[in-house]
């Protein structure tokens, strides 16, 4: 198993994409720090499922939008493990509103969780990766480069996340740390149900050339590849996992897709 003996922190890994990533990395032998914010039961279930794979899981509650909580999280990892090999910056939040209704609170909430957390976590993670190298992978979305209804603040936060990924990749390269991101289209998760409710996404099967929606495991597979030594020369890249949606839009328009 390629990640045997490695330690990975996956933020927001109680549910959805984060959970799938945690399980994928665990299946390759990595011990996992399961971070959650609002759903303890889900996080504990993820930890149980990780342990069933024969590796260790540590559940920690930390809102990554809160700088002090990030410090506590990394203090714990430093004290308990003294190292970190993989940081998956997955936790995300957002407010689905038209531009006119985005207030300072909604902006800061989203930016703090979706972007600032990568900066602060990467700073702390890099210290724990000192002398051993490491991998940092963030989860972005198509909304960083395409306009989705009521997605402004999240889309902008993801664009910033992607820019930060490039800067981190270069600054951390001399330390043997690979930094990349995976941008997914709408992924079938609990969070997506919220977005449906808020009118942010419609049924995207119709606009996915691959014929089905992206599932969390699709994203997890690419994240796991980016965490492997085979991906060592991929730096500062945003890998799109969308079943062809973004490159197939014009073709679908030509077909008169609804």
């Amino acid at each position: 198993m390629s990640l045997q003996g490695k330690l990975a922190l996956v933020t927001g890994s109680g549910r959805g994409i984060g959970r799938a990533i945690a399980l994928k990395l665990a299946s390759q032998g990595a011990d996992i720090v399961v971070d959650f914010f609002r759903h303890r039961e889900s996080a504990e279930q993820t930890a149980k499922d990780i342990e069933a794979l024969g590796v260790k899981a540590e559940v920690v509650r930390a809102n990554v939008g809160d700088a002090a909580k990030i410090d506590e999280l990394f203090d714990m990892i430093g004290n308990k493990f003294g190292r970190l090999d993989i940081l998956i910056n997955n936790a995300a939040s957002g407010v689905g509103r038209p531009l006119a209704d985005i207030d300072v609170k909604a902006w800061e909430w989203t930016m703090d969780i979706n972007v600032r957390a990568l900066l602060l976590c990467a700073q702390r993670a890099a210290k724990l990766m000192e002398g051993r190298g490491g991998k940092i992978v963030s989860i972005s979305s198509l909304g960083s480069r395409f306009v989705l209804p009521n997605y402004t603040v999240v889309g902008v936060s993801k664009a910033a996340l992607e820019a930060l990924t490039r800067y981190l990749a270069i600054e951390l390269a001399p330390r043997g740390i690979c930094v990349n991101a995976v941008a997914a289209s709408a992924v079938e998760t609990e969070a997506l149900k919220f977005y449906f409710k808020e009118g942010l996404v419609k049924d995207s099967r119709q606009v996915t050339p691959a014929g089905r929606m992206v599932v969390p495991e699709d994203v997890a597979n690419v994240v796991a590849f980016l965490c492997s030594e085979e991906a060592f020369m991929i730096r500062g890249q945003i890998i799109i996992v969308d079943g062809g949606t973004s490159v197939g839009l014009l073709a679908l328009a030509g077909k008169g897709a609804q």
């Binding site: 609002r38 759903h39 303890r40 039961e41 407010v95 609170k105 909604a106 909430w109």
Partner: peptide
């Protein structure tokens, strides 16, 4: 709104030293 509720939950959790899961 939903963001206000989450922020209120977090503030209440910190004030009283408890955890209130979304469930």
């Amino acid at each position: 709104d939903s963001l206000d509720v989450v922020q209120a939950l977090v503030a209440v959790e910190e004030t009283f030293g408890i955890e209130i899961p979304d469930e």
